[in-house]
Design a protein around this nucleic acid. Structure first.
Lengths: 244, 244
DNA sequence: CGCGACCTTGAGCACTGTCAACGCGGGTGG
DNA sequence: CCACCCGCGTTGACAGTGCTCAAGGTCGCG
C-alpha cells in the first residue's frame, strides 16, 4: 500500500507536487520552482499512498502528525457542526496540500472522494527541512498564501444570496482548479456528490438541485451525468458568476 | 510623517510586530519568536507611519509594493462589488499583517478606521530577506497559516443563516483579536461602523441593527455606545455563537 | 432484477433584503 | 449658547429567496 517514491516522480507533470504560485507576488518576484535537490529532499521523507474512494484520511481533532499532498484523485475536507449540518471546507485536487492543524490537532476531517494517490510527509521532518531550506519554504509560503486568496474568494461565493450564482461560481472554480488535468475545455468533472456541493456552498441539498435545473433551463450548462457538467454558454455563465 | 523605527521597538509589547502562532502546529513544534538579529533586519527595511483615521492606504488593483504591519489602531480591508455592495474582508488590529496581492496587484482596498501606526516594508526587500533567513520566514509562514485558519472560521460565521448568531460570533472574534489590548475582559471595542460590520458579516445594515437589538433584548450584550459593547452573559453568548 | 443511495420536485414557512421614514448626536456657525 | 445640519443608526411593512418536510424518481451495483 505504501512505498517510497523516486525523487524525479515527485514533481512530474501532469501532477506537480506543488503548484507554484507567486507569493505576495510583486510582478518582479520570480515564480518559485522546485530544484532537483529539493525534490530529492522531499522524496526522502515522503511516503506515497494509494487509497480507495471513501476512505477517511484523518478525523477532526486527531493529533496532526502528517501533511498530505494530492497526486491523483479528489479529496474533501469537512467538519460536522453541532446542528448536524456538514460544512465542506475545501475540495482538494492534484497539487493541493492539506493537513491544516491548530494546537497540534487537525481542524477538519478529510476523506477520499475518488481513488487517490497521496504523498504523506511527517510534519516534524518537514518543519526541520523548511527551517534549513529557505527556498523550499518560500515555495510553501507561496502555496499557503494562494490558499488564503482562495479562501477569500470562497467567502465571496458563499455570501451571495442567490443559489444559481453560487453554483455558477462553484462550477467555474472547479474548472479552474482542474484546468489541464485531463478535462476538455468546456467540460467540468464533478467527482463529489450534490450533497458535498451543498456543504461547500452552504446551501441545502435541494437548493443545489434546483439551481442546477435552473442553469440547464437557461441553457448555460448541461449536466451530462451526475458527475459531469458541460458549459454551453461560457460568456453568460461567466457574467452570472461575476455579478456578485 | 515617516521615520525609521529603532530596532528594539519593533517587537516590544504590547504590540508585537508579529504575533507568533504555531504553524502546521504539531504540539512538538516550538513557537517561533523573533530574535534580536531578525528584529534588527526587519527594522532596517521598515518604515514607521502614523496616519489619521479614514485615510486610504492603498486601492484595490494598485501595484503591490509594500507589506504592512499594524502597530496601533484598526484598519479595514474591503472590496466594492459590481452590485454596489461592499464586502469587508478583514478588520486588522495590532500585530496583524496585510497587503495580500495577486499578480503584483493588491486584492483589496485598505483604509484606516482609527488613527493608526503602521510598519511599511518594501516587498522586494522583504522577499530577499525571507529567502536568506529561514527562521524569520518560518514565523511569517506561521502567521499566514494562522490567517488561513481565521479565514475558514470566518466562512463558518458567514454561512450561518441567523443574523443574531453571526453577530454573536463576530463580537467574540473581535474580543479574541483584541484580547490584552487594553480592554477589560467583558468589554468589546467596536471601532468600525455598523455598516462595516454588515459588510463583514454579509448582512444588510438593518439586519445588524436588528440583531444588536435582539442581543440586548435577550440580555446577552449591552451596547454602551456605538463603539463599545459589554458582555452581560458570557456563557449564553458563547453557547449562541457555538450553535452553528 | 431489485435494492439502496442519491437526486429531483412540490408546498408552506421563516428569515433577511429592500424601501422608506424617523431618531439621535456631534460638529458648525451664527 | 443655541439652532441647524448631516451622517449614522433604528424601526416598520412587504416581498423575495432558501430551508424544511415530504414524496416520488433515477441510477448503479450486487
Amino acid at each position: 500500500m505504501t512505498k517510497r517514491p523516486d525523487p524525479a516522480s515527485l514533481l512530474s507533470d501532469p501532477a506537480p507536487l506543488i503548484r507554484t504560485i507567486p507569493f505576495l507576488d510583486s510582478a518582479a518576484a520570480a515564480v518559485p520552482v522546485l530544484t532537483d535537490r529539493q525534490r530529492h529532499d522531499l522524496a526522502a521523507i515522503a511516503t506515497k499512498l494509494r487509497l480507495p474512494a471513501r476512505m477517511k484520511l484523518y478525523q477532526e481533532g486527531a493529533p496532526a502528525t502528517w501533511l498530505f499532498i494530492v497526486a491523483e484523485g479528489a479529496v474533501k475536507s469537512f467538519r460536522d457542526l453541532p446542528s448536524g449540518k456538514r460544512r465542506v471546507a475545501a475540495f482538494l485536487f492534484p497539487g493541493d496540500i492539506f493537513g491544516l492543524a491548530e494546537s497540534g490537532r487537525y481542524i477538519n476531517t478529510t476523506q477520499a472522494i475518488t481513488r487517490v494517490t497521496l504523498y504523506r510527509i511527517p510534519l516534524d521532518q518537514l518543519t526541520e527541512l523548511l527551517r534549513r531550506d529557505a527556498e523550499l519554504q518560500f515555495t510553501v509560503l507561496c502555496k499557503v498564501t494562494h490558499e488564503l486568496r482562495e479562501a477569500q474568494r470562497r467567502t465571496l461565493t458563499v455570501t451571495r444570496r442567490d443559489a444559481v450564482g453560487r453554483l455558477a461560481m462553484f462550477l467555474l472554480m472547479i474548472k479552474a482548479d482542474l484546468a489541464g488535468a485531463g478535462a476538455e475545455a468546456d467540460t467540468i468533472p464533478l467527482p463529489m456528490s450534490r450533497s458535498d456541493i451543498a456543504g461547500y456552498l452552504a446551501l441545502s441539498l435541494e437548493a443545489v438541485s434546483r439551481a442546477s435545473a435552473e442553469l440547464e433551463r437557461r441553457r448555460l450548462v448541461k449536466f451530462e451525468s451526475r458527475n459531469l457538467a458541460r458549459i454551453l454558454d461560457a460568456k453568460r455563465l461567466g457574467a452570472l458568476a461575476a455579478a456578485v
